[in-house]
């Protein structure tokens, strides 16, 4: 799990997606794309954003839920706490949840 988290965080676009989800929880893919293009001027396709979200979901950093026809994405910061505890609290070994 830790490898997936570090890999997910290694990309600046994915970190920007996390910033936006931290600002407002529960966004559709359309809203995430709008924020990346209008606010951050990132010329990035919907397909590419979708792939970034899949990487973030695999790392457990983003969760998605369906409500009726719609799918909303939320930030889950819990995996970040676990990876920092590895060094800030050395009595906690690298966890493999």
């Amino acid at each position: 799990m830790a490898d997936e988290i570090f890999k997910a965080l290694a990309d600046p676009t994915r970190r920007t997606i996390l910033d936006e989800l931290a600002e407002s929880s529960g966004q559709t893919l359309f809203e995430i794309c709008t924020r990346l293009s209008m606010k951050h001027r990132l010329g990035i396709s919907r397909q590419a954003v979708s792939q970034h979200l899949a990487v973030l979901e695999a790392a457990g950093l983003v969760e998605s839920r369906r409500e009726g026809r719609y799918k909303f994405h939320t930030l889950n910061p819990d995996p970040l706490k676990r990876i920092t505890e590895r060094w800030t609290r050395p009595d906690q070994p690298e966890s493999t949840p």
Binding site: S24, Q27, T28, F30, E31, T34, M38, K39, Y70
Partner: peptide, 22 residues
């Protein structure tokens, strides 16, 4: 599905028209 969001002077929101469209 999207509450009012202001970016670069443009504000948008997205609603469900209850007939199958956003």
């Amino acid at each position: 599905t999207q509450e009012p969001l202001e970016m670069g002077g443009v504000t948008t929101a997205v609603l469900d028209d209850t007939c199958g469209n956003l």
